[in-house]
Design a protein around this nucleic acid. Sequence first.
DNA 1: TCACCAGTGGAGGGTTCG
DNA 2: ATCACGAACCCTCCACTG
Length: 424
Amino acid sequence: MSPAHRTILHVDMDAFFVSVELRRRPDLLGQPVVVGGTGPRGVVAAASYEARRYGVHSALPSAVARRRCPHAVFLPGSHELYSEVSAQVHEIFNRYTPLIEPLSLDEAFLDVSGATRLFGEGTQIARRLRGDVHDELELGCSVGVAPNKFLAKLASVEAKPRATPERVQPGPGVVEVLPDRVLEFLHPLPVSKLWGVGPKTFEKLARLGVRTVADLAALDERTLVSSLGRASGVHLLALANGQDDRPVEVDRAMKSIGHEETYPHDIHELADLERELVRLCDAVSARLRRHGTGARTLTLKVRFAGFHTVTRSTTLVSAIDTGPEMVAELRPLLRSLDVAVGVRLLGVSTGNFAERSQQLSLLTGNPDEPLRSAAAIDQIRDRFGASAIGPASSMTAKGLRVVRRGAQQWGPDQDRPNESDAAR
DNA sequence: TCACCAGTGGAGGGTTCG
DNA sequence: ATCACGAACCCTCCACTG
């Protein structure tokens, strides 16, 4: 039996990556600080509220961010550290409910419907939780409280601090949407605030004369479905009426694993791309094995110099989980493309997970060689680190050192300065 | 032989989110 | 002037099956 109405929390850490950095760099407090890619093709992953005053926000190209706020401090960031801190935040959540659905490192839904008897109303839980996070981790967060996920997420936006060109205003921290005030809260909002309405959908809705959520709610379902498609149309109309019965899902199974990289310079040579393909397959297959699964569907992604992007995929009868096997499937797909114009990004993604079946090699009649050597590689990496061993094709000419690009999640590293730049 | 139906699943493109 | 990365989900078209 589900309760008459649920109490859902959406917790969103305030400027998470930056706030974590500021704990070890208190000298930067109150300054514009940006975490993200530092190279010319990088983007902003997180901006302090001071930086936001200058129009710097996440996903903004770093080059633009530098122009808008030249005195901002740019930090490369450490995904691993943020992961650890995120886990600590979740431990705090766990005091109040086990029903936690992480959306990302810095966001989560909590279903506290069953916790109110023990800890009080949703807003009381929200305030206690904020206090814990602040006192124990020196981090700020904003919490939305509502009868469903979608409204809780909207509420947490209202709870956040706000940066205007003049100043940074602290937010209320906790905002609740009461069950009998849902439409009152929802309908005046612009449709662009709805979860799932991006630039494209916004344009389609604008053509239907829709500007506010109230406009959307008044729309005929058939009209909406014919414009947005079945699933999106029905879903969006429900949201516009404040209805969202999606449960807080604790263990969402991963459906795809992939790696993609944007290069500091476009690549024109097929041979170079094939070498990159080997590296990507090596990395993705290692992650597959760590998750103890194999993949049946492999997808190659290529972004050309003009930003035009294509994908080529293949689905196998049985799942694989080693680099060489993946390369064997994807290399022909890569070769089928004309890469003369130059490639700025190459990506490999896997899905359709299934147990890897034991099989005999047709050539040797022995148990699958790739499988055994992959296991050996995993052992070496466990003991000596990820860069201890890699594909021969990614060794430098000088040999012996595996070429590992910087662990940059938000774009390629800054170009390595050459000797003439070393002026001091 | 043709038309149709319902269901499944692959391929490729696309949108959205954080 | 410039635009990352990782993942989920959706749509359309198409082939195949019964």
